[in-house]
């Protein structure tokens, strides 16, 4: 997947977690947590969804890499390049 596709997957997962979230207004470089008002239980869902879809194991130590939309894409790009 390319960067744009990865970004869309993340947005889709977020929308799926919280149907009320307004993903159109998300700023790529700002922390998702502040913009979406979600908590750590919700963020676990992003990790679990990526695992379910792409068999991708994200160790807990790497969770900070998923802080913003831009950092998610940076982190996932090499890991999802063959998907």
């Amino acid at each position: 997947m390319n960067r744009q596709e990865i970004r869309e997957v993340i947005l889709e997962i977020i929308q799926d977690i919280d149907e009320d979230s307004s993903i159109e207004q998300l700023k790529d470089d700002q922390p998702l947590r502040d913009q979406l008002d979600l908590d750590s239980m919700d963020f676990l869902d992003i990790v679990m969804e990526l695992r379910k879809r792409y068999k991708l194991q994200i160790p807990e130590a790497d969770y900070p890499e998923l802080a913003s939309l831009a950092s998610c894409v940076n982190y996932l790009e090499p890991r999802l390049q063959d998907v």
Binding site: D18, E19, M41
Partner: peptide, 19 residues
């Protein structure tokens, strides 16, 4: 109430994916 994202009830429903 619906908008309170951090309330236990709403967190629970999100975790179970129940609308």
């Amino acid at each position: 109430a619906p908008g309170l994202k951090h309330a236990p009830l709403n967190r629970l429903l999100r975790q179970l994916k129940i609308s």
